[in-house]
Lab assay of single mutants.
Amino acid sequence: MLDDRARMEAAKKEKVEQILAEFQLQEEDLKKVMRRMQKEMDRGLRLETHEEASVKMLPTYVRSTPEGSEVGDFLSLDLGGTNFRVMLVKVGEGEEGQWSVKTKHQMYSIPEDAMTGTAEMLFDYISECISDFLDKHQMKHKKLPLGFTFSFPVRHEDIDKGILLNWTKGFKASGAEGNNVVGLLRDAIKRRGDFEMDVVAMVNDTVATMISCYYEDHQCEVGMIVGTGCNACYMEEMQNVELVEGDEGRMCVNTEWGAFGDSGELDEFLLEYDRLVDESSANPGQQLYEKLIGGKYMGELVRLVLLRLVDENLLFHGEASEQLRTRGAFETRFVSQVESDTGDRKQIYNILSTLGLRPSTTDCDIVRRACESVSTRAAHMCSAGLAGVINRMRESRSEDVMRITVGVDGSVYKLHPSFKERFHASVRRLTPSCEITFIESEEGSGRGAALVSAVACKKACMLGQ
Score class of each variant (00 low, 15 high):
Pro66Met: 14
Phe123Asp: 03
Glu300His: 05
Gly294Trp: 01
Thr118His: 05
Leu301Thr: 14
Val305Phe: 14
Lys190Glu: 13
Gln239Asp: 13
Arg377Thr: 00
Arg303Gly: 05
Val302Leu: 08
Glu40Asn: 08
Ser398Cys: 06
Ser453Ala: 15
Ile110Glu: 02
Met238Trp: 03
Glu128Asn: 09
Thr376Asn: 06
Lys13Cys: 14
Ser263Lys: 10
Val86Tyr: 03
Asp217Gly: 15
Lys414Arg: 14
Arg403Asp: 14
Asp198Glu: 15
Ile211Glu: 15
Gly162Gln: 01
Arg429Ile: 15
Leu75Asp: 05
Gly261Tyr: 02
Ala232Gln: 04
Thr60Gln: 02
Asp409Asn: 06
Lys420Leu: 06
Cys364Lys: 13
Met34Gln: 09
Ser127Arg: 04
Asp158Ser: 11
Glu128Met: 14
Lys104Ile: 13
Cys434Phe: 07
Met139Trp: 05
Ser109Cys: 11
Asn83Ile: 04
Met235Val: 13
Ile126Pro: 01
Asn179Trp: 09
Gly193His: 11
Arg63His: 13
Val302Gln: 15
Leu271Lys: 15
Ser212Tyr: 02
Phe334Gly: 15
Ala259Asn: 07
Leu47Ala: 14
Ser375Pro: 02
Gln347Phe: 12
Glu319Ala: 09
Phe171Ser: 02
Asp400Gln: 10
Asp3Pro: 10
Thr60His: 01
Arg368Asp: 13
Glu443Leu: 14
Pro417Leu: 11
Arg447Phe: 15
Glu272Pro: 05
Asp267Ile: 11
Glu237Leu: 03
Lys414Glu: 10
Arg275Asp: 15
Gly94Lys: 14
Ile404Trp: 06
Val62Trp: 05
Gly448Gln: 01
Gly72Val: 01
Leu45Ala: 07
Asp267Cys: 13
Lys13Thr: 10
Leu307Tyr: 05
Val367His: 05
Asp113Ala: 12
Leu47Gln: 09
Gly385Ser: 01
Leu355Ala: 10
Asp198Gly: 02
Val91Leu: 15
Glu93Gln: 09
Leu386Pro: 06
Ile130Gln: 00
Val302Ile: 06
Leu270Ser: 13
Leu292Tyr: 08
Gln98Gly: 13
Cys461His: 04
Ile225Pro: 01
Gly183Asp: 15
Arg63Ile: 05
Ser263His: 06
Lys296Asn: 12
Lys140Cys: 03
Gly97His: 08
Arg308Met: 11
Lys459Asp: 15
Arg186Ala: 04
Ser398Ile: 09
Met251Ala: 00
Leu386Asp: 00
Asn350Pro: 09
Glu399Met: 11
Thr116Phe: 01
Ala10Gly: 11
Gly294Val: 02
Asn231Ile: 00
Glu70Phe: 13
Glu22Val: 13
Ile351Cys: 10
Glu372Trp: 08
Ser398Arg: 11
Leu357Trp: 08
Gly227Ser: 02
Glu40Cys: 12
Pro359Phe: 08
Ala119Cys: 04
Asn204Ala: 04
Lys161Ser: 01
Asp409Phe: 03
Met238His: 10
Pro284Val: 09
Gln347Cys: 11
Gly294Ala: 13
Asp160Ser: 06
Ala173Phe: 01
Ser263Leu: 09
Phe152Ala: 02
Thr376Gly: 12
Cys382Ala: 12
